[in-house]
Design a protein around this nucleic acid. Structure first.
Lengths: 338, 338
DNA sequence: GCTCTACGCTGTACCGGTTAAGGGCGATCG
DNA sequence: CGATCGCCCTTAACCGGTACAGCGTAGAGC
């Protein structure tokens, strides 16, 4: 390793024959510097390969130009069979890159890591914190917001905090309504659902959408619960079939669970959609490729990430027009399974 | 926003009735502090909710306790239909979490972002940089290493740099050899391959493994190229079928491409494995679930991430026993497709 | 009882930037 | 022609920690 000494402002200043302050102003693009001097400084910067020390800069500016994204799951579970977080990351990353901010990724599954996140943000390591989907009524976003740290959540908070934090969510209820009405309009009457975990807003709202629509149509509810994983969908579908062998349709609250449900139906010798129609929720890439291709409610996950990031950028730049809540539209995508 | 002032060392010192230096030593766990004073400081820290300012600390220690992971793709492509990067992230994250280091995620698809990564590392924002899979002979790892910044790569560098950087890779050639020998031993003789991109070491090595094994058996090669995406696998399989309708087996250099190939075979009316046997490479979760379940070469992706992170931690801690190269084993997983 | 040593704490000089206050100098105006 | 003004640059005071040198104090040794 060569470990060439990193040049400092001081070195650049000496080389250009000016003071540190002048170099600082040139580097930060101040216009009140004579052209000749500005040129000299730029040349010195180039010759020495000067790069400002971020720690020193942060110490005085109280900004780090980086933003944390918290994935409230253990590193174990995230990414295991989940396509949601990668898409969120992608959206967030696109937007932060454009703003020249850095993305710090943190997993916060355990209580201990909760603490770590809080300390990390308090240590001024990041300018703001984004939460990607949350379980239960997590106190962390509210706690950080109370400390004056910009916070944005994905997913409407389950319990409205005393201090409301901006969030972005999708129209779960509307999308599910479309899906269930589609099932009804195609002649189905015994429509069950595999619902998501009830400690997540996505789980709660999608179940509400199902219940509201069914009730409006005067039909009977039939619910089994999963945790958004493929396997839980498979098991839930089995339970539904055991409880009501006559069911002719099912709305499954996530694509992953829907693929599990397709498997369960296949195992049980049911044809899809002839015997049982299936609708999912997410519209992952793989849902176009399943057998049969999955009818599903599309939610714009990448856009959620982008929107969160934009809200965050607005907050850290003290823009006044940052909306408290953004709800993105969902849309039924009809394929072969229903 | 309440924006409570963050307490400083100074404030804690005043409250505890000691000097800044003493508080600093207590906070950093030095043992040469009298118990009574240590207690008093701890209490003051707790009462004030003191959290050390990371920027100030980094300024003097020249360390940030965070590590960058570079995904050399545009944010667009990463995660689109790729399951490799999420798994790497998961492995890296597990290991860094345990070491209480933070993970900074950066995309570096464009030349411009290349520059950003270099400046970012040079600014001392991170203590080290890890590269997750690379295209071509990327000069960036070598450049950073030359600047004295700890670097670890996933995937053997395509052109050995003048300054060798530690890397972790898997035994591509060995795994592919197992796969192709399996095809031969089950009676196949017209064995084609869908190879990966030849600007990536994984693409090159897997093709080499195929070629070496076929040659050793005195069989004829038949190659089409893809770029590891499902769609490219589908198209490549079509070309192979058009060129040799008699082929009876194919080794596909990635699971994603293999799923595309399965689709192409199905479209062409070929039964798998009766007419054409298919072996993939990766062993993603979804490969157990395809129809038929995919025989494939398992590579330990999460372990790659963990190993990279461990090497990195060794480097930043100046451990002497950091191996230059770690090659993890691969293993044929036989399912129904071959 | 005095010196010596060891220990533990304080004082302070940094780390590398930013920024407010201050000063030199040429141009402008009366 | 002198006072005033404004433009640009320099000086220096921070930001909040770390770590080293140094000093006070207490206990040991004789």
């Amino acid at each position: 390793m060569v470990t060439r000494e990193r040049p400092t402002l001081e070195a650049v200043a000496r080389r250009a024959g000016v003071s540190r302050a002048t170099v600082s102003r040139v580097v930060n693009g101040s216009t009140t510097v004579a052209v000749a001097i500005r040129e000299a400084v730029h040349q010195a910067v180039a010759e020495l390969g000067y790069v400002p020390n971020q720690a020193a800069r942060s110490l005085v500016t109280q900004r780090t130009e980086s933003i944390a994204l918290i994935l409230p799951e253990t590193a174990n579970r995230v990414f295991s069979d989940d396509l949601f977080f990668p898409a969120v990351i992608r959206g967030v990353s696109m937007e932060l890159d454009a703003a020249d901010k850095q993305l710090v990724l943190m997993m916060a599954g355990s209580a201990a890591s909760h603490d770590r996140v809080e300390r990390y943000a308090m240590a001024g390591h990041v300018d703001g914190v984004m939460f990607a989907s949350m379980h239960g009524a997590d106190p962390l976003p509210g706690a950080l917001a109370r400390l004056g740290i910009p916070v944005v959540c994905s997913g409407r908070p389950m319990t409205p905090a005393e201090l409301p934090v901006p969030y972005v969510d999708v129209d779960h209820v509307g999308g599910v309504g479309q899906a269930v009405r589609h099932l009804i309009s195609t002649g189905h009457r015994r429509i069950a659902t595999v619902a998501g975990p009830q400690d997540m807003i996505a789980g709660v709202d999608r179940l509400t959408g199902y219940q509201d629509t069914l009730r409006a149509a005067g039909l009977t509810e039939h619910v089994a619960f999963g945790d958004f994983t493929r396997d839980s969908g498979l098991r839930a579908m089995r339970r539904l079939l055991a409880e009501d062998p006559q069911l002719d349709a099912v709305f499954v609250a996530s694509d992953m669970m829907a693929h599990g449900a397709l498997q369960a139906l296949k195992d049980a010798g049911r044809r899809v959609p002839a015997d049982v129609a299936v609708v999912g929720f997410d519209d992952f890439e793989i849902s176009r490729l399943s057998d049969p291709p999955l009818t599903t409610v599309r939610q714009p996950i990448v856009d959620m990430g982008r929107t969160m990031a934009r809200q965050m950028l607005g907050l850290v730049n003290d823009k006044q027009d940052v909306p408290d809540a953004v709800v993105l539209p969902t849309e039924l995508v009809v394929r072969a399974s229903a």
